[in-house]
């Protein structure tokens, strides 16, 4: 499968605010302020647009509000000011249209791999055959074949995270929100997971919002990286990443372009800290 046309035609920042382009936007944060109490804000007057099908990563120092943005879009929080919209409609709470992968994988320990992945279909009118087919396909895509009847506690950390990603992706959400999903696994496993995620992203056309601390991870995965400033500074940088396709090849981790992006981002991050 090739990349979706929308993703490859993402323009510059100014481009987003033009009304004729609003069809391409899936998620929009307009003038959003948020704090756990009114006296201590975490976000202030933040504007952020996410395009249909794009892979967007949020980078920034700890406490800059990356996870808060993700939680707002998921519908776990409501903004104190401003609007968070999905396809033009205000987000009122969690929905199956917006999948979430948690760092803790949040699998259901009492269900098998198959049951975990098929969980979302319980709430959709979809034939048993279709459900079975889709679950089997995604199990193959994330390399879990042969583990269908195992329980999460019988799997390694990396495998569990694969189940979590598959469970969220199989119901084809319009956007998948991932909060440091691979932070708890070892480096080798993490690289494998990143490559699988990119392949999945090609197959399932939804957008992905990814939160991480790792510059390498961000460069390898993303179409676009947003760096958040500290102290309610909002968006410090908005950078598009163009690495030669197919994106998931390991060579992309050592290419000159990759290193350039990494150095550039590293310096930008340093400047913020």
């Amino acid at each position: 499968m090739s990349q979706s046309p929308v993703r490859s035609s993402i323009g510059s920042l100014d481009h987003y605010s033009q009304p004729e382009d609003s069809l391409a936007e899936i998620i929009s944060l307009d003038n959003v302020s948020f704090g756990y109490s009114r006296k201590r804000l975490v976000l202030q007057d933040l504007d952020l647009k996410i395009q249909r099908g794009e892979f967007l990563t949020l980078l920034g120092p700890s406490g800059c509000g990356k996870s808060t943005i993700l939680n707002l879009i998921a519908g776990f929080y409501k903004p104190l000011l401003g609007a968070v919209t999905h396809g033009g409609e205000e987000i009122k709470g969690p929905s199956a249209r917006r999948g979430v992968v948690f760092q803790s994988n949040a699998l259901f320990d009492w269900m098998t791999v198959e049951q975990n992945i098929g969980f979302g279909f319980r709430f959709q009118s979809i034939s048993k055959y279709e459900k079975q087919k889709r679950v089997e396909t995604i199990i193959g895509l994330v390399g879990l074949r042969g583990n269908e009847r195992k329980y999460p506690y019988q799997l390694s950390g990396g495998m569990r995270q694969r189940v979590a990603v598959a469970r969220s992706m199989v119901v084809q959400p319009e956007i998948l929100l991932m909060d440091e999903p691979f932070a708890a696994v070892d480096v080798q496993t993490r690289e494998g997971l990143q490559e699988e995620l990119l392949k999945l992203h090609e197959q399932v056309a939804g957008a992905i919002l990814f939160v991480t601390h790792s510059i390498e991870e961000a460069v390898f995965l993303s179409d676009r990286i947003v760096i958040l400033d500290r102290n309610l500074g909002g968006i410090a940088h908005d950078i598009e990443i163009h690495l030669p396709g197919p994106r998931y090849t390991a060579m992309n981790r050592v290419s000159d372009e990759f290193n350039q992006y990494r150095t550039d981002l590293y310096l930008k991050m340093k400047a913020i800290e």
Binding site: A74, F76, G93, P94, S95, A96, R98, G99, V100, F102, S104, A106, L107, F108, F119, G120, R122, F123, Q124, A164, R167, S168, V171, P173
Partner: peptide, 12 residues
């Protein structure tokens, strides 16, 4: 997070 995960998968 397990409850939230279920919600984002469409569970009532």
């Amino acid at each position: 997070d397990k409850i939230l995960a279920a919600q984002t998968l469409g569970a009532n």
